[in-house]
C-alpha cells in the first residue's frame, strides 16, 4: 500500500497541492481524477520522488518510501519521452537495467511485453520511426516491465485506440492480481468508472473525495425516479421531498427525510398507477461535478 500523508507543494505563490492525503491499497486499481491543474501530476511526481514535498510524506508498506523502493516502482510520466534515435529493445533493456534488473531478465520481460502489445516486429526499429500510438505502447512497456512493486501512471490511456485500451486494462489487472497497488490518472471518467475499484478526486490541490465507487455513491445525495400514469406535478408540494425535475408523469426527486419515500409512494398509489419507482445510481461524472463544484 502507498500512503500519501498531508503532502503540500507550492511553486512560488501557487500551491499546487495542499495537504493531500489518500491511500493506494495493494491489489486494486485506483483512479486519480481531477480537472486540469488540480495537482494530479505534481502529486504523482512527489510520490515518485521527482519533486520534494514542502510538507507531508509518502509511505510505502507503512514506512517512509526510500529511493530503493521507488526503483522498483513502474512510472509513466505525464510527458512521454524516450531516446528517439535508439532501437526500442535496446533502450527498454537499458531502462530495465537502471531499475536493477539483470540484462537477461530485462530482455525477457521486454520481449514478452512487446509481444503482448503487438510490437515484437518493431523491436529493432528506432523509436522515432514508430507512430505516436506505438511510442505510447513502448512507454507502457518501460513502466510495466520487470514485475514492478507498484505502478504510478500519469494518463496511461491517452492516445490509445480502444483495442489498446483493453489490452492495457488487462495488463493492469494482471498486476493488481499480483497484489500490486496501481494509481493512474485519467480525464476519461467513464473509463475510470469501468476499470477502477477505487477513486481519488482532486480539486484545486486538495482531495475532495476518496474511496471505492460505492462509498462515493453513498456519500452522494441519492435520487429516485418516479413514473406515474398521470401528471406528477403534485410532487413539488410534498413535504420532505425535493423535486429536482418534473416532466409530465415523470419526476426526479431527492428524499430529504427518512420517511419521505414511504409517504411519496403511498400518496402516488392513492392517486393512481405507479409505473416506476427506482433508485438512480449517480454516474461518476455526476459525483465528480458535485464534489468539485
Amino acid at each position: 500500500m502507498i500512503e500519501v500523508h498531508g503532502v503540500s507543494r507550492a511553486f512560488g505563490e501557487v500551491r499546487a497541492v495542499d495537504g493531500v492525503s489518500f491511500a493506494v491499497p495493494g491489489g486494486e486499481l485506483t483512479g486519480f481524477v481531477g480537472g486540469n491543474g488540480a495537482g494530479k501530476t505534481t502529486t504523482m511526481r512527489i510520490v515518485m520522488g521527482l519533486l520534494a514535498p514542502d510538507d507531508g510524506e509518502v509511505r510505502w508498506r507503512g514506512r517512509p518510501v526510500t529511493r530503493a523502493d521507488r526503483r522498483s516502482f513502474g512510472y509513466m510520466p505525464e510527458e512521454r519521452g524516450l531516446y528517439p534515435k535508439q532501437p526500442v529493445l535496446d533502450q527498454l533493456v537499458y531502462l530495465g537495467r537502471l531499475r536493477g534488473l539483470s540484462s537477461a531478465g530485462a530482455r525477457a520481460s521486454v520481449v514478452e511485453h512487446l509481444e503482448r502489445l503487438g510490437l515484437a516486429a518493431r523491436a529493432k526499429d528506432h523509436v522515432e520511426k514508430l507512430s505516436l500510438g506505438n511510442q505510447q505502447r513502448v512507454q507502457i512497456v518501460a513502466a510495466l516491465m520487470g514485475q514492478p512493486q507498484a505502478l504510478i501512471l500519469d494518463e496511461p490511456f491517452s492516445g490509445l485506440d480502444p483495442t489498446a485500451v483493453d489490452s492495457m486494462a488487462d495488463l493492469l489487472r494482471e498486476h493488481t492480481s499480483r497484489g500490486v497497488p496501481v494509481l493512474f490518472s485519467s480525464h476519461q471518467l467513464e473509463l475510470v468508472e469501468r476499470l477502477c475499484e477505487r477513486l481519488v478526486v482532486l480539486s484545486r490541490g486538495s482531495v475532495v473525495a476518496a474511496g471505492t465507487a460505492e462509498e462515493l455513491r453513498a456519500g452522494s445525495t441519492a435520487r429516485h425516479r418516479l413514473v406515474l400514469g398521470t401528471d406528477a406535478g403534485w410532487v413539488r408540494d410534498l413535504p420532505g421531498v425535493h423535486a429536482v425535475d418534473v416532466a409530465g408523469p415523470s419526476a426526479l426527486v431527492e428524499l430529504l427525510e427518512p420517511d419521505a419515500g414511504r409517504r411519496l409512494l403511498t400518496e402516488a398509489l392513492s392517486r393512481g398507477d405507479v409505473r416506476e419507482f427506482s433508485l438512480q445510481r449517480p454516474s461518476l461524472a455526476q459525483i465528480f461535478r458535485e464534489v468539485t463544484a
Binding site: 495493494g26 534488473l101 539483470s102 520487470g146 514492478p148 512493486q149 476518496a210 474511496g211
Partner: peptide, 24 residues
C-alpha cells in the same frame, strides 16, 4: 470520505529477489 479501511494486501514480493538483484 474515508481512507482505505480494508486490510492491506501487499504483493508477495513480485519478481524473485534473485531476478531483481542479480545485476549489481
Amino acid at each position: 470520505m474515508t481512507l482505505a479501511t480494508r486490510p492491506p494486501t501487499e504483493p508477495t514480493d513480485p519478481g524473485t529477489p534473485a531476478e531483481r538483484h542479480t545485476s549489481e
